[in-house]
Design a protein around this nucleic acid. Structure first.
Length: 569
RNA sequence: GAUCUGGUAGCUCAGUUGGUAGAGCAUCUCCCUUUUAAGGAGAGGGUCCAGGGUUCGAGCCCCUGCCAGAUCACCA
């Protein structure tokens, strides 16, 4: 089907032909050598002017201010925006002024990518500017970019703000709102800092399967897929925990992976169906050691990204300076509700939850009830980074039983800005206990908990050979990136957040579809015959036939035999 | 999944009881040699998200659906 092009898009397509007629290729192949960036010029020109007598610069035209035989153009490269000055008699020294009058003034547009050669100077109003002696079109843009402007008071006009368009067309967002590039640069710095921190400690970065026959390592609903040759169901991983622990069994003493995980659950500003988690397992360590490590690592990330342990996040200033507050889960609940639940049984917990207006249901076991109370009454209030330790055993089937406290496991989460950013345990390495815990999960599954874990025989077999005492950590990269970049939605730290597909053009109406199906089958049919088949009112019939023709799908031909409708294309 | 809000020109947005679809920027034509969101004059540009209904007449009212955002629920 033909694209429906706007007036401006058609104009720009015509310019392609006009350019070629003048011998200007709008999509040239040749390399254009760039020897400076906008940021470089803006930063260093004043202090060393002789370096910028001959520059070669490339970028996208973001704004043009034409002024007769002169023009000012704002160009943007990856680093910044810089002004470029064009003068007709410099661009066209001879009698032929075509390059300026025609090519530059009429056929070049905002959004085009060009290269310029010239020298840097300062204009009368004091702006550092490239004086172009020559320019070359590098890429013609046939779709107009939004052109936001900012005035002297910083007031914005026509800003490109519609979240749907920004997420769907991130390439436009990145061009038009270049400040958001910084968020993604910081995200990469975060990952790089973490990676080098862990590598320097001697831990091995590894890769483990994303397609898994049994999904495990977390409580979540998976995406299900199918392998044709093996004719078997595979799941996209919800976690890589079990595979990494198998590597510890295999003798590595520290392994980590930046893992894309997939969870088939609700979406919100904190949840994307695919997200990134860094998981780390270190042999001969416990969860106390891991808490110290997390503090150190995250503090370092804050320092690298911001030069400070303090990070502004929305209304809150979050300080990652060590040491962080540490509460046991029972202490936290007592702190925020005034109730000591540490000695309660399941029915006491249920009535306490009800008293606190925490929604409960029959499928919830003791651990889940405690977790609900915590999640409802404490989590959102923890703004500064805080470790919550010692979770109920029922909700932590992969964590080692607490060395002293009955009914608890050696587990911690770090809560920051009211959200969990990491989760860690002293890993359970007792194969007999591990089997029992899996079996308890199966029981929970039968009670209706659709996130209960599945029993993984191969994982059990591995730890039967013996896994050294190990500390394990999972840290949410997206969540941490949101905090570190002051982003309120996970979509702002993902280049391409998951979206429903946008509709391409108008869909066919019911009546149009009905007619189209028949015409498609027959290829060509007499109009009266067709009308008898579809049984529509005159008005609907007329509208549908015209609609199909307007969309270029069908064509009506008049022949000696009568009026025929046929398929186009 | 629930509730609320929104979808009108390339972008940002108006649109009166329901009576010929508007503005600014952008685009096109002409004039302008150091400008700072916005120089001057003129012109063009629309599937008002889609489908149905009410009506003499719908961008507006009603119904259904699509997409998005916010809040909530589940989850990290």
């Amino acid at each position: 089907m033909a694209q429906n092009l706007s007036e401006q898009e058609l104009q720009r397509r015509e310019k392609l032909d006009r350019l070629r007629a003048l011998g200007v290729e709008p999509y040239p192949a040749a390399e254009f050598k760039v020897d400076c960036s906008a940021e470089d010029i803006l930063k260093n020109y004043e202090s060393n002017k002789t370096l910028y007598k001959a520059v070669s610069f490339a970028g996208r035209i973001m704004r043009r201010r034409m002024q007769g035989k002169a023009a000012f153009v704002e160009m943007q490269d990856v680093s910044a925006r810089i002004q470029v000055y064009f003068n007709r008699d410099e661009i066209c020294p001879g009698d032929d002024k075509t390059m300026y009058n025609e090519v530059f003034k009429k056929l070049i547009d905002t959004g085009d990518i060009i290269g310029v050669k010239g020298y840097v100077f300062t204009t009368q109003v004091g702006e550092i500017t490239i004086h172009a002696n020559e320019f070359v079109l590098l890429t013609k843009s046939v779709k107009p970019l939004p052109q936001p402007k900012v005035d002297a008071e910083g007031k914005e006009y026509d800003s490109f703000t519609d979240p749907e368009q920004r997420y769907r067309q991130r390439y436009v967002d990145l061009n038009v709102n270049p400040e958001i590039r910084e968020t993604f640069v910081q995200r990469t710095q975060l990952v790089n800092t973490m990676r080098s921190y862990l590598s320097e400690k001697g831990y091995l970065e590894v890769e483990t399967p994303i397609l898994q026959p049994i999904y495990g390592g977390a409580a979540a609903r998976p995406f299900k897929t199918h392998h044709n040759t093996l004719d078997m169901t595979l799941y996209l991983r919800i976690a890589n925990e079990l595979y990494l622990k198998k590597l510890i069994v295999g003798g590595f003493d520290g392994v980590f992976e930046f893992a894309k995980d997939f969870r088939n659950e609700g979406m919100s500003r904190f949840h994307n169906p695919e997200f990134t988690q860094m998981e780390l397992y270190v042999a001969y360590k416990d969860y106390n050691w891991m808490m110290d490590m997390v503090e150190e690592m995250v503090e370092k990330i804050a320092l690298v990204l911001h030069g400070d342990t303090k990070v502004q996040v929305g209304e809150n200033e979050i300080n990652f300076a060590r040491p962080w507050k540490r509460y046991t889960m029972f202490e936290a609940i007592e702190e925020y509700t005034g109730i000591d639940i540490s000695e309660m049984n399941e029915s006491q917990l249920r009535s306490t939850a009800e008293k606190l207006n925490v929604p409960v249901d029959a499928t919830m076991g003791k651990g889940k009830l405690i977790d609900e109370i915590f999640g409802e009454k404490c989590e959102g209030l923890l703004i500064q980074p805080t470790f919550i330790t010692d979770y109920p055993v029922e909700m932590s089937p992969l964590a080692k039983k607490h060395r002293e406290k009955e009914g608890l496991v050696e587990r911690f989460e770090c809560i920051c800005n009211g959200k969990e950013i990491c989760n860690a345990y002293s890993e359970l390495n007792d194969p007999i206990d591990q089997r029992k815990r899996f079996e308890e999960q199966l029981e929970l599954g039968k009670r209706g908990d659709d996130e209960a874990m599945v029993l993984d025989e191969d994982f059990l077999r591995s730890i039967e050979y013996g896994m050294p005492p190990t500390a394990g950590l999972g840290i949410g990269i997206d969540r941490l990136a949101m905090i570190m970049t002051n982003s309120s939605s996970i979509q702002d730290v993902l280049f391409f957040p998951q979206m429903k597909p946008e509709k391409r053009g108008p869909e066919l109406g019911e009546n149009e579809k009905l007619i189209y199906e028949i015409v498609k089958k027959e290829c060509k049919i007499e109009l009266g015959l067709l009308k008898a088949q579809v049984d529509l009112s005159n008005k609907k019939w007329d509208k549908a036939i015209k609609g199909l023709a307007n969309q270029g799908l069908t064509k009506v031909n008049k022949t000696d035999q009568g009026l025929f409708i046929e398929l186009v294309g």
